[in-house]
Every structure is written in structure tokens, then in C-alpha cells.
Nucleic acid binder design. Structure first.
Length: 584
RNA sequence: GGUCCAGUAGCUCAGCUGGAUAGAGCAACAGACUUCUAAUCUGUAGGUCCCAGGUUCGAAUCCUGGCUGGAUCACCA
């Protein structure tokens, strides 16, 4: 059993016996003792003053005496103000390490029978992915891994916004100015090529609009609208061009996804789902969930949940965004019978998702009680917002290439790496991506973040490479190990150093951290945990000798600690979608 | 105007259901490589936790009011 749980249970018993007062284990505050004080775990006793009718110091003493006599793992205590600092016997820690070492896939929670869909990325097909998408994609990937680790079955999906006026804009510009250019003929990645014509469209549109009255739309805009009409009428030539250009974009997206190491279990296309949902509206109209205005438009009243009236069907009977989302959710339920769903979407859509979830509740969909919007803040650059029109967008592919290049250069300056050219390339890729991903994931999702490209390739301090380096040092030690080590006596090892205990204390928290990160939909908690572990480990490695330890028992204990730390760091980084290099 | 989110060191961020003297990293300065990889470690300096009230033994954290920045409230997606 985890020691904090044991302490909690015994404190409950103590309070009951001493003061005839019942407390709940979960309400107790037991936390690792702050490093400036002596002890391993601290109990805050202030909350008992009322029930005990005594001062905190007396209560701490009585509970401390109770615990030391009743719990063999507790060997002593000290009291500072209302804080009871407990000492845990060293044997507990060595036994705990031994258990951890032999446990397979530590941190994985038992299956809870729940199935969850995580939707993320969901790009438009008219331009390449940029930094904002990257935050989305990394958050989506990490949270689906974390949710799965917490015991849920997870289905990862994206909905591709492959139809609409935006893609028609790229299409018309390509038709007018492209001269039949393809990714093959000019060697450009497909999404970038299509994006180029989207930019071209905007340029022409601006030029043409400049000489027209305010209200009047440009020639090229009218042409794009014409194209959308043709698409909706299933015009063969238009559909053909649409398929071709989207195909280019998908090839490009897939390459970026592959570079980022992310996958999807199922992909939905808006062109196939945008008509869904109407029948649900009609049915909901019949049983009074929705109401119809005189012009024929259909609405829902969400004032009871402090939202507005929301349109769900236009007066001409066509669907809106909300209609589609209702339909898509329902379709997913038909496909997978999920218990809940998580949408990874920027916080500018908070209102939309609140409304969507309320509507699904009113429709009494079986999954409606477990919907979550993983809402994340905008990614800003040091000098302000990203704006495509001003050319200040950070392209995902460029960024990936850049960080890997930086790492390569830095690595070369640090001296020759003992590895083949191929291995080196792989190391630089892992470290570069590690830096970038960690940089984006360490920030709490709901906070808007400032992305400084220079800082994203930092290799020192609270960064991905710092954590990877801890893993690399462990591998180095294991490589140097040239004799058999007898791990049998680790269970009884007594001479535990504070640095070692600190690492162990953190390792013990791993399953709990996973649970919390899953509950909060917050990968940054994993990121910070990894840093804490790596930091404690670097300190341990600096202060304590492993291979040249004084006794064989100490050596075995420390090696076991190294291996276990390495496994947990690798496991936790995998949750963030970050690989570990063997050397760097 | 309504709603939501954010505001903590020069910068980027932590701070769990309210708990000890508010913590890290970067940048600055000063140290530690003949040693398991110094992509590391140690130290110095840096704070009106946006402001004002309130609740509490105790508030960065909870409540109320305000300030600043952002988003949103479309028969757009």
C-alpha cells in the first residue's frame, strides 16, 4: 500500500479513538514534508482543533504518539506549529523500490470499462498546419494517452473540414493562376501548395476589393462562391478538382502527423457529415426540445443554463455548424457506443461547446453527461498574435525542421557523438522534437501562451532535453556495468541517502499524477512531474556514486533506483508523445 | 452590455481539495569537470501574488466589487 494511504487510515483511527470524532480519509492533508524541515510526510492538524478542543501542538503530540506506537513504518515525529512531521522507516523505502522494480507497466490503471472518444487536430484543408494546430495536436495526443493510461479505452479521431468556401478559395486561385502546377511538378508539399493559392486568393481579393464599393464583393470572391455552388450541385469537374487538391493536402498533413508521431483511429470528413443532424432536429421539434419561428428557422432556448437562444436549423432548412456537430456526435455513438467524448478545440469556441453539450443533454443522448471540451488558449508570439495576413504565422513543418537543425548544430559543438550517421540523425530528431513538444506541453492548456522560437530550442533547464538527458545518463551507467549484480538484498537495504529518498518519493506519486492529469485533462501536470523526477535524479547522480559505491548492497540499490527511474521517465514521456534517446 | 478565460520575479511558467518563510527555469553574477556524459550540479540577486474589501486559526488559492488583456454572444465554420 502507498504509505500516504496507510498514514491517512491510521490518522482516522487515531482521531476516532482520541477524540471520538469521525473524519474522512480523503479530507486529510498528508503531503511530503517540505525540504527545509525534518521528516518524510507531514500531517496538518489544525482541522482537528475544534473536535479535540485542544491546541494544535497537543493534538500533534497525541497523534504522533499514536502513530509511532501503532504503525511500524512510522519511527518518529517532530512538531512545528500545527504540523506533524512523520519519519518513515528506511526499510519501507527499500521494499517499495523493490516492488516498483518488479512491477510491470507501473502507472497503468486497471481497465474501468469506459470508452472515450478524443477528437483533436480537425484542420481545414486550405492551408498547412501551423503552431496553433501543433498545440492542439500535441494536447490531443497527450491527453488521449493519459486518459488511456488512467484505464479508459480511447478512440482518437479528427474531423477534417474538407468542404466549404475556404477550400473553394484555394481552388479558384489554383484554377486561375496555377497553370496546372502540382506537388510533383514543383516539388512542394501538397498542403503548402494549396496554402500558397489560398494566400494568392486573399491577395487578389484585396486588390480587386480596393477599387470596388465597400459592400460589393470582388470578382474572385464571386467566382469562389460559384465554385461552392457547383460543388454542392455535384458538378463532376469541380468534384474532381476538389478531390485532387484535398488529396494533396492529406498527403501533406499525413507527413506532418508522421513527423510529430501522432495517429488517428478513425477520420471523419465534413463532406460526409455536414448533412447529418437534420433528422434529430425534426424529431426534437416534435417532442418540444426545439421550437420553430414563423420564418421556419429552428431554435433552442438555453436561457435556463445561462446561455442564449441558439439557432439549429436555418429558415431555408439547411444546417449550421451546430446541426452538424449534433449529427456527428450521434453518428459516433452509432459507430462506437462511447461513454463520453473529449473535444480538443481552441478556447474561442467555449460558448459553442457549452451550447452543444447542453443541447445533447436536452436530447438525452446516453453519452451527454461525459462530454468535455479541452479548451486551450491561443499561442502568441513574443511580439503579438500570429496573423496569416501579416505573414507572422509559424509553420509547423518549418518549425520542426528548425529545431532539429538547431539540435544538430548544438550537438556538433558539444563534441563528437559516438554513433553512426543514421543514429545521430535519429538522436537529433528525438531531442529536437523533445524540446519542441515539451515546450508546448509544459504550459497549462487553458492559459494563452507566449511562444518564443528561441526558447523552444533551449536544451538546458526545464526542458525536454534536460529530462531526456537524465534517461541518457541512466543508459550510460547501465552500459558501463560489467558485472552481475545481486538485487536480492535491496529489500533490506538501510543506508538510504536523502537524495535517494527524494527520488523514490516522487516515483511513488506517478499513478496518482496520471489520475489527476486525466481527471483535469491536463498534460502539463505530467510534464512538470517529469521535470521534478529528472531534477531529483540529476541531483542524486551528482551527489552519490552508483558504480563505485562503497558496498555491493549500495550499488545494487542505486542501480535499481536508476533503472526504475529510467522506466518511469520513459513511460511518462511516452504519455506526452516524446521519445527517449539512448545517448545524446 | 451579458458570459467565459487569463493576470504570480526582468522573461517563460509552477503552486493539488485553503496550510509552514510563494517556488522552478531562462537571463545576470559567482563557483564545481583527472570522476557513472558539465545538455549536469551549487550559490548570489530578483515578489505590492492586478487592486480593494470580506470569510478563516490560516488566503496567491474561497466570496463580493473593481481594473487590465483576450475570446465569445452570426441564418460563418
Amino acid at each position: 500500500m502507498e504509505i500516504t494511504q496507510l498514514i491517512r487510515e491510521q490518522v482516522v483511527k487515531a482521531v476516532d479513538q482520541l477524540y471520538s470524532h469521525t473524519v474522512d480519509t480523503s479530507s486529510l492533508l498528508v503531503s511530503p514534508t517540505r525540504k527545509e524541515f525534518e521528516g518524510d510526510y507531514t500531517l496538518v492538524v489544525f482541522p482537528f482543533t475544534k473536535a479535540a478542543k485542544k491546541g494544535p501542538a497537543d493534538i500533534a503530540k497525541e497523534i504522533g504518539d499514536f502513530l509511532t506506537s501503532e504503525v511500524k513504518e512510522i519511527t518518529g515525529y517532530n512538531i512545528i506549529k500545527g504540523f506533524l512531521n512523520l519519519n518513515v522507516v528506511n526499510a519501507y523505502w527499500s521494499k517499495y523500490l523493490n516492488d516498483l522494480y518488479h512491477q510491470e507497466d507501473f502507472g497503468q490503471h486497471a481497465p474501468n470499462g469506459r470508452k472515450v472518444i478524443v477528437e483533436y487536430s480537425s484542420p481545414n484543408t486550405n492551408k498547412p498546419l501551423h503552431l496553433g494546430h501543433m498545440r492542439n495536436i500535441l494536447l490531443g495526443w497527450a491527453s488521449s494517452k493519459i486518459i488511456a493510461k488512467a484505464g479508459n479505452e480511447v478512440i482518437k479521431t479528427q474531423i477534417i473540414n474538407d468542404r466549404g468556401i475556404h477550400i473553394c478559395k484555394s481552388m479558384i486561385a489554383w484554377q486561375l493562376y496555377g497553370n496546372g502546377e502540382t506537388p510533383e511538378t514543383n516539388g512542394t508539399k501538397g498542403d503548402h501548395l494549396v496554402g500558397k493559392y489560398y494566400v494568392e486568393f486573399n491577395k487578389k481579393d484585396k486588390e480587386q476589393s480596393a477599387i470596388l464599393p465597400k459592400e460589393q464583393e470582388s470578382e474572385i470572391m464571386l467566382q469562389a462562391r460559384e465554385l461552392l455552388k457547383k460543388w454542392e450541385a455535384n458538378d463532376p469537374a469541380t468534384i474532381e478538382m476538389w478531390k485532387t487538391m484535398n488529396g494533396w493536402v492529406y498527403a501533406g498533413f499525413n507527413q506532418t502527423y508522421e513527423n510529430l508521431g501522432v495517429t488517428f483511429d478513425v477520420v471523419y470528413y465534413e463532406s460526409e457529415t455536414y448533412l447529418l443532424g437534420k433528422d434529430i432536429i425534426i424529431k426534437g421539434l416534435e417532442n418540444g426540445v426545439f421550437y420553430q419561428k414563423e420564418d421556419g428557422s429552428v431554435w433552442i432556448d438555453l436561457e435556463d443554463v445561462k446561455l442564449d437562444h441558439k439557432l439549429v436549423l436555418r429558415s431555408d432548412g439547411t444546417s449550421v455548424y451546430m446541426t452538424q456537430d449534433i449529427g456527428t456526435a450521434k453518428k459516433r455513438y452509432e459507430d462506437y457506443q462511447m461513454d463520453g467524448m473529449t473535444y480538443v478545440v481552441g478556447d474561442e469556441q467555449n460558448y459553442h461547446f457549452k451550447a452543444l453539450f447542453e443541447i445533447l443533454k436536452k436530447l438525452k443522448e446516453p453519452f451527454a453527461e461525459n462530454l468535455h471540451h479541452l479548451s486551450y488558449g491561443m499561442v502568441n508570439l513574443p511580439h503579438g498574435k500570429m496573423k496569416s495576413r501579416e505573414g507572422t504565422v509559424v509553420d509547423a513543418d518549418d518549425l520542426i525542421k528548425e529545431v532539429i537543425g538547431e539540435v544538430e548544430q548544438e550537438s556538433k559543438e558539444r563534441g563528437e557523438l559516438d554513433a553512426s550517421e543514421e543514429e545521430k540523425q535519429d538522436i537529433w530528431r528525438i531531442v529536437g522534437l523533445g524540446a519542441l513538444k515539451y515546450h508546448l506541453l509544459k504550459v497549462n492548456p487553458k492559459k494563452p501562451m507566449v511562444f518564443d522560437p528561441k526558447e523552444s530550442v533551449d536544451l538546458q533547464g526545464q526542458t525536454g532535453p534536460y529530462i531526456q538527458y537524465a534517461y541518457v545518463r541512466i543508459q550510460g551507467i547501465l552500459r558501463k556495468l560489467d558485472e552481475e549484480v545481486n538485487f536480492e538484498h535491496v529489500v533490506n537495504y538501510q543506508e538510504i541517502e536523502p537524495q535517494e529518498k527524494h527520488v523514490l518519493l516522487l516515483l511513488q506519486q506517478y499513478p496518482g499524477i496520471i489520475q489527476r492529469a486525466a481527471n483535469n485533462f491536463d498534460p502539463s501536470e505530467i510534464a512538470h512531474y517529469c521535470y521534478d523526477v529528472a531534477s531529483a535524479f540529476h541531483k542524486f547522480l551528482h551527489d552519490v556514486q552508483v558504480l563505485t559505491a562503497n558496498t555491493s548492497e549500495a550499488k545494487a540499490f542505486r542501480l535499481m533506483l536508476c533503472k526504475t527511474t529510467g522506466n518511469i521517465l520513459k513511460s511518462a514521456f511516452a504519455l506526452l508523445g516524446i521519445e527517449m534517446p539512448k545517448r545524446m
